[in-house]
Write a protein that binds this DNA or RNA. Structure first.
Lengths: 242, 242
DNA sequence: GTCTATAACGAGATAGAC
DNA sequence: GTCTATCTCGTTATAGAC
């Protein structure tokens, strides 16, 4: 009886994976807006109503794809980071950013799903938040370690940002000073600005040799969040140099 | 006969505008991927074949909407800039960025059309380039003026970026040093990272008081491209402060 | 209980004959 | 330019196999 349940569970996992794989294929071909349960079922040789045993609605399938995409990106970033865990914070920061770009270039349609235009009529549920946070958490960790090791340069905040900065700090990383959290969140958004512009064609005929450009840009972001070169930690605030 | 032709031309302009208005409405409701000439025609009480007198294909209608969106954004940024044309480069930079954000918040679906995920099966023709360049040209102008006025802090480039930086400089602004152009292009992409994250919901539950956050972040971008406060122009490279 | 299949709904798109 | 017959879609109800 336990073997029967095991087989059943295994089959269920396999079918679920097949549905998501086919859905991802359609995502690439037609975009998230045109993702259709019926087309997925047809391609798999199933009948559309059978899909409802696996995903209660089209939106639930979309949510699963979104969480998978965030997790796939998060894993890529985390394993890249693990390989340089012993390095300095600036190198770790750049490694995480480069891994995020690499993942995005390898999975452009899934990138568009999570960081591109919202899908009309769909709003992501709270379940997506943990997976969506993984890269951000990683970057916070890098800065936290640097801050413990005094490698962080603090830059002052304008008066009208003080309360919001304190709220953000309390919410995201109470052990880090507000001005660092503000720079971190801005850099986080700016990182995806760089990736999105490359992926969505805005850099066509503008930036040709993209990898060094990207590395240099995220190196400047590292500087913005206070990750300076070791020898500059004392005289923090100076421009980065190779 | 010239009056008849005038009336004809006027009617054509009006119908063209009505088609684009209706198409924009559908853009907001269903997204660019599902934009359908038939649906636009139905809503206007026309027959679908009549639309082809105004737009030879769905892609041409999309192109027109994209150019309109870029132009609308460009106009907003340019007129905002004109009002502070006499101010310092840092204030002019921030004004342009704030205007871009204001336009994006007022026209989220058109923003998604031009800076969001690519529309499956559509590739933008070269005609869109001039309109798409307007904000970038504006930002280059601000930095150019500052550079002439010595308000620009130069930061060194890594060796592997030198040739690409020189190519970009020659292409975009031969009168500006390569390291400034690189910082400018990166900041340009990062600006839309900030706007996109706010617009597409990535800042939900992360950044609440967004305007001061945005102003502060683009102030840091200004600093990245070398637009420091007048009194700091000599000791360039220091952190920005209000 | 778990799954798949049939059939149907209401809504919308589409192709072609007229 | 109009009409109609035939597609698509998400979703549900129901029945039967395992």
């Amino acid at each position: 009886m336990s073997t029967a349940q095991g087989a059943r569970a295994r089959a269920r996992i396999e079918v679920t994976a097949a549905i998501k794989d086919e859905a991802r294929r359609q995502l690439a071909a037609e975009g998230a807006a045109k993702l259709s349960l019926r087309a997925v079922a047809r391609e798999l040789g199933m009948v559309s109503s059978a899909l409802y045993r696996y995903f209660p609605s089209r939106d639930d399938l979309l949510t699963a794809l979104i969480i998978d995409a965030y997790d796939s990106l998060g894993e890529e970033a985390e394993s890249a980071h693990a390989e340089v865990a012993a390095a300095g914070p600036r190198e770790r920061w750049i490694t995480v950013c480069v891994a995020a770009r690499r993942w995005a270039l390898a999975h452009p349609h899934e990138y568009a799903l999570i960081y591109g235009s919202p899908v009309p009529g769909y709003t992501a549920p709270q379940e997506t938040v943990p997976a969506a946070s993984r890269v951000g958490v990683l970057l916070i960790g890098v800065v936290r370690d640097a801050y413990g090791g005094k490698g962080v340069a603090r830059t002052p905040l304008p008066a009208e940002m003080k309360t919001e900065a304190q709220r953000m700090s309390a919410e995201l990383a109470p052990d880090l000073p507000p001005e660092v959290i503000v720079a971190l969140v801005a850099s986080w958004a700016q990182l995806y600005g760089l990736i999105g512009f490359e992926l969505f064609g805005q850099f066509n005929r503008v930036v040709e040799d993209r990898e060094p450009f990207f590395r240099h840009a995220v190196g400047r972001l590292a500087h913005d969040v206070g990750l300076v070169y070791p020898e500059q930690a004392a005289t923090a605030g100076g421009p980065p140099s190779p």
